[in-house]
C-alpha cells in the first residue's frame, strides 16, 4: 500500500522481470531475475494488471484464458482442462464462448484474473483488483484470495482499498516515495496515525472508531469488524453484569 507514485507497481514489475533492478538484486525463489526471461519468471509469478483493457484481445473468453497456457507450452488436453476449471472457479463458465469485449467492466476484470490464474502461478500479484468492483464481487475476491492462500499460494495485492485490507488482516508493506516505510500486520499499520498520514491513506472506519473509544479501555489497533464485534460484546456483557448487580 502507499500513495500514488510510491513505487508499488514498479516493485511488482520487478518480481517477474518486466523491470530489472538498476541497483541491488531481486531474487524469486533464489533465482536472480536478471538471469531469467520474463516468460520463465511469469510462469512462477503471475501479475494481473489493473486495467483488463490492456490485455484482452481474443475472440472468446475461453481463448483469452488459454492464451498464456499456449505461450507456456502446455499440452492441449491440459489447456482445455485448466481453462474450464478456472472459468468455473471464477464464475465465468457461462461466458466461455462470449467475446470478452461484450462483458461488463467487473466481468472483464474477472476474465483478466482468470487469464493469469489458469496457469496456477505460485505467486499471484494483483494490481488494484478492487477498483470498479461492487461489494459482492469484492467479497468473492476476498474468499478467493483466502482459498488460494490455503492452497499454499502467496497473493500480493497492490491497493488503496483500506477496508478490503482491514477485513483480511494480511501482512502489509507500506511504501512512500519509492521506499518501504513500514511493514507488519495490517492492524498495526492501518491503526498507526503517523504511517497512515505518510502514505496518504485513510484509516479503516473501525480503526477510526476505536481510536476515539480509547478512553473506554479498548485497544487502538482494531481494524476489522469481526474483532470489533468481539470486543464490544465483551464490554457490553460486562456492563450488563454490572447493571444486574446494581452497581
Amino acid at each position: 500500500m502507499g500513495e500514488n507514485g510510491a513505487g508499488k507497481t514498479t516493485l511488482a514489475k520487478q518480481l517477474n522481470g518486466l523491470l530489472r533492478p538498476t541497483l541491488g538484486r531481486v531474487t524469486v525463489d533464489g533465482d536472480d531475475t536478471t538471469k531469467k526471461s520474463v516468460a520463465q519468471l511469469s510462469r512462477k509469478v503471475g501479475i494481473v494488471f489493473q486495467n483488463p483493457d490492456h490485455l484482452l484481445f481474443s475472440e472468446t473468453v475461453r481463448d483469452e484464458v488459454g492464451f498464456a497456457l499456449k505461450n507456456f507450452g502446455f499440452e492441449l488436453g491440459v489447456i482445455v482442462k485448466q481453462v474450464e476449471r478456472t472459468l468455473e472457479a471464477l464464475d465465468l463458465a457461462h461466458y466461455a464462448d462470449t467475446s470478452p469485449f461484450l462483458l461488463s467492466g467487473g466481468e472483464r476484470k474477472r476474465v483478466a484474473l482468470a487469464a493469469v490464474l489458469a496457469w496456477e502461478p505460485d505467486y499471484l500479484i494483483l494490481d488494484e483488483p478492487t477498483i470498479g468492483q461492487d461489494y459482492q464481487q469484492k467479497e468473492r475476491l476476498r474468499n478467493f484470495i483466502l482459498q488460494l492462500n490455503s492452497q499454499g499460494k502467496a497473493v500480493v495485492m497492490v491497493t488503496h482499498d483500506v477496508e478490503f485490507v482491514a477485513e483480511c488482516n494480511p501482512k502489509v508493506v507500506l511504501m512512500s516515495k519509492g521506499r518501504i516505510v513500514a511493514q507488519g500486520q495490517a492492524d498495526e499499520i492501518l491503526s498507526d496515525d503517523g504511517l497512515i498520514e505518510k502514505a496518504s491513506l485513510v484509516k479503516p472506519q473501525m480503526a477510526k472508531l476505536f481510536s476515539q473509544l480509547g478512553g473506554f479501555g479498548f485497544p487502538r489497533d482494531v481494524v476489522d469488524v469481526h474483532r470489533a464485534k468481539m470486543l464490544l460484546e465483551e464490554k457490553l456483557s460486562e456492563v450488563k453484569v454490572r447493571v444486574a448487580q446494581g452497581s
Partner: peptide, 15 residues
C-alpha cells in the same frame, strides 16, 4: 498504453 499492453502480454508468456 503500448508499454503497459506489452508488459501485460509479456506477463502472460508472450515472447
Amino acid at each position: 498504453d503500448a508499454q503497459t499492453v506489452v508488459d501485460a502480454q509479456r506477463s502472460r508468456g508472450l515472447e
